[in-house]
């Protein structure tokens, strides 16, 4: 299968001006690639820079060196060099991200929170809502909660809403930051199935998972992030 994501010599250092300009090196020399239909799991100790790598791929963190090439939708974009507009376009067409926590918008019903990425991509609202409903049902969110905003839901429910939102689009590259962290065994299994389905459709997946069983079930390759950790 073709390569979807390619990181080369990626480095990141935070400079904290409010703390006297102290520099916090995070990672350096990050290099790995992921092919279509393949899942790469980032492994490493806490603080090794796993989430930072994911955020650099998504464009939330800027990287100081190297390249992050995404080959999708008939073109190649280097996220490390891309203009904001190109990154927005890439996110709309090719790049999905399930964050660790749901950033809930006040007043928006759960079903619309989940449907929103499709609506933004131009899918008709009723159709998007039906897709959202399917996913919410699979993830065991009771139907009586769908019209409610998720802000008051439990941690696990919010995470499942977040997963539904992240999985609703069919994008070539999907980034998962601890998608199963606060889920019970039954829901973890659902997420494993959802990831497997994405892979079968040719989606390349980069994931951070701490649960050994989930990792074993979804990983095709494991990237040891410890070797990229930058020395302070």
């Amino acid at each position: 299968m073709s390569t979807v994501l390619e990181l080369t010599a990626v480095a990141k250092t935070f400079t904290m001006y409010l703390q006297g300009g102290v520099r916090l090196p995070v990672v350096r020399g990050v290099a790995f690639a992921v092919r279509a239909g393949e899942c790469a799991v980032l492994a490493g100790r806490s603080g090794a820079g796993k989430s930072s790598i994911l955020k650099m791929i998504f464009g939330t963190y800027r990287c100081d060196a190297g390249s992050i090439r995404v080959h999708a939708d008939g073109r190649t974009v280097d996220v490390a060099q891309a203009q904001p507009r190109q990154i927005l376009l890439l996110r709309a067409r090719a790049l999905g991200y399930v964050s660790q926590f749901l950033r809930a918008v006040p007043r928006v019903p759960t079903v619309d929170v989940v449907a929103e990425p499709l609506v933004i991509a131009g899918v008709e609202r009723d159709h998007a809502r039906r897709r959202a409903a399917d996913l919410l049902r699979r993830l065991n969110i009771p139907e009586r909660l769908w019209p409610l905003p998720p802000a008051t839901f439990s941690g696990g429910e919010q995470q499942r809403v977040n997963i539904a939102r992240g999985f609703i689009s069919d994008l070539p590259l999907l980034l998962l930051d601890e998608p199963t962290a606060s889920l019970d065994a039954g829901n973890r299994a659902v997420v494993v199935d959802l990831v497997a389905a994405k892979k079968r459709c040719g989606t390349a997946v980069v994931a951070i998972v701490h649960d050994d069983d989930v990792r074993a079930a979804i990983a095709d390759t494991v990237v040891d992030v410890n070797r990229f950790t930058a020395a302070a």
Binding site: Y17, R62, L88
Partner: peptide
């Protein structure tokens, strides 16, 4: 920059 870039990874002292 992108909204999430500027808010989550601010580069300038004033933005921080």
């Amino acid at each position: 920059g992108l909204t999430d870039q500027v808010l989550d990874d601010p580069h300038q002292p004033y933005t921080q």
